[in-house]
């Protein structure tokens, strides 16, 4: 348990294979499903009464909805309505992963690069396909922004291409690195406390210090969890905006 990386180990709960592929229901899958149940359950419970004057939970859900809707509207524009459910789902699934991961003994599925990379690549693929479907070959103009002297293009176009290709990498890596680093840090400080407590009376008292640090870190991680979900969703919005209206 004390290995700070042990918390990231995937443990199969219901092992099974389909077509030679290991699709076991694991602790990661379990927490994904818990995330699905908690988020949909919370929303349906909060919106159960559909009251005109909302209660606390309904107000919370409505404010959250308005926030995501506002984010989509201000970043993509009125055309963003079509992508709103997608962005909302993205936001919720990342936020659930980050938040549920802070519960002791839980599993943080967003701390696995394959998950964050898959989400980032989904956004990237969607943006790319939309761009091609919408603008055809003209979408390549994205790599040659107007308004620069012709001799800059040989330098600018490769840079634009590289930065475009780097999007899904940074997009996915940012979330993964944030979650992994945070959880390792929490575990290491917790380990300090336990080690000190085991080292006698003086150590037991001194062990409170890393515990206090850890309390602060938990608060910080809570902020990071929400912030990274927000950042993930807003970046998806910004990437989508590029395709929705290419002004050149």
């Amino acid at each position: 348990m004390a290995d700070p990386l042990h918390q990231f180990v995937i443990e199969p709960i219901v092992p099974f294979e389909i077509g030679g592929m290991d699709l076991s229901f694991t602790n990661s899958s379990l927490w994904m499903m818990i995330g699905v149940v908690v988020s949909t359950g919370f929303i349906s419970m909060a919106m159960g009464k559909k009251s005109l004057v909302p209660g606390r939970m309904q107000a919370f859900v409505e404010i959250f909805y308005e926030m995501v809707a506002g984010m989509v509207r201000s970043n993509i524009g009125p055309e963003g309505r079509r992508y709103f459910p997608f962005i909302f789902t993205l936001f919720v699934i990342v936020m659930m992963g980050n938040l549920l991961g802070l519960i002791p003994y839980s599993f943080t599925y967003t701390s696995h690069i394959i998950v964050t990379a898959a989400l980032a690549l989904m956004v990237f693929g969607m943006v790319l396909l939309l761009a091609i479907a919408k603008h055809g070959i003209h979408f390549l103009a994205h790599f040659a922004p107007p308004g620069v002297p012709w001799f800059v293009y040989p330098l600018l176009v490769p840079i634009e291409i590289v930065s475009y290709m780097a999007r899904p990498i940074t997009h996915g890596l940012r979330l993964f690195a944030n979650m992994m680093a945070g959880h390792i840090m929490l575990k290491v400080f917790a380990g300090f406390s336990v080690a000190m407590a085991g080292a006698g009376a003086l150590g037991f008292v001194a062990g409170i210090i890393p515990m206090l640090v850890n309390s602060g870190l938990i608060a910080f991680e809570l902020l990071i969890a929400l912030l990274q979900a927000y950042v993930f969703a807003i970046l998806a919005c910004i990437y989508l905006k590029d395709t929705v209206d290419m002004d050149h």
Binding site: L5, H112, I114
Partner: peptide, 25 residues
């Protein structure tokens, strides 16, 4: 030594991520 780089868990994670995302969406 990073569990995240254990490629044998990738299919399961991807599969269940897709399931979760599809249900949520």
């Amino acid at each position: 030594g990073l569990p995240q780089l254990d490629a044998s868990t990738f299919p399961s994670q991807l599969f269940w991520l897709c399931v979760a995302f599809a249900i949520l969406y």
